[in-house]
Amino acid sequence: MALLELISVTASYGAVDALNAVSLRVEEGEIVTLLGANGAGKTTTLRTISGLMKPRSGSIRFLGKEIAGASANSIVRLGLSHVPEGRRIFPGLTVRENILLGSSNRSRVPKAELDRDLDAAFGIFPDILKFADAPGWTLSGGQQQMVAVARGLMARPKLLMLDEPSLGLAPIIVQQVFRTIAAIRERGTTVLLVEQNAHMALSIADRGYVLETGRLIVEGPPATLLNNEEVRAAYLGGRVTAG
C-alpha cells in the first residue's frame, strides 16, 4: 500500500481547472519530486493534498484513509506535514516559538519530549540556533526556509511535503537545503518535493513526476526524466537535437 495515493484528482479555482485527473503515489521511504514550470499546478497539488483546497473530484488516500476534502487541521494530525511555498514564518514570533508550534498537531506531548525534538531540529539546522530568540521577520530567506522545514519536522510527519524550498536562495544555500532533505529521508521521513530546480531535485529523488498545465505528462526514475526529450526541452534547458 502506498503511503500517499492520488487517483484522478481534479481541482479548480472557480471555473478555471488547475488540476486535471492527476494520479500519483508516494511509497514509504521515498523522495518523490513533482516538477513543472511556473503555473503548472504544483502548489495546487500540495494544497489539495493538505486540505487547504477541496478537490472537485477524485480520491486522495493517506495511510489507506480517504482524506479528500478533509480539513487541513485533521490531515496534519494524521502525520502529513506541508511546508508551503514562501516559507510562511510567523513574523512576530521567535524562531524557537515558530518551530515549537510545529508540534501543534500532536496531542499532549510531554515538555521533555518537545525539548528533545526542538534540540533535534536545531541539530539538523545548526545555523539557526543562534537566532532562536530572534523574531521570525528578522531572518534572511535561507534562514527562514530552515525554520520552515524545522517547523514541519516538529509535526513528526510520516510524509513531509516541501513546496519549492530552494526558491530565492543563493546557490550555496540551495545545496545545503537539498543535502538536508536527503538527510531527513535517511532518518526515515518520506518526502514529496515540489521544485522548479529540476536538476537539483532529481539528484536526490527516487522518482519524479512532471506536471504541465494541470496534467501529469511523464513519471519515472531520475534517469528516465533526464533523458525524456519533452522534459529536457521544457525544464532542463536545451533540446537534445537528434542526429
Binding site: 493538505s50 487547504l52 480539513s71 487541513a72 487541521n73 496534519v76 494530525r77 506541508h82 508551503p84 510562511r88 510567523f90 513574523p91 512576530g92 514570533l93 516559538e97 515549537l100 508550534l101 510545529g102 501543534s104 498537531n105 500532536r106 517547523r151 509535526a155
Partner: peptide, 18 residues
C-alpha cells in the same frame, strides 16, 4: 502563542494543526 500565530497567518496555523 497559538493565538498569536492565528492572528499572524490563519492558513499556516491550520496547516500546523492549530
Amino acid at each position: 502563542k497559538k493565538l498569536q500565530a492565528t492572528s499572524q497567518d490563519k492558513e499556516m496555523a491550520s496547516l500546523l494543526g492549530i
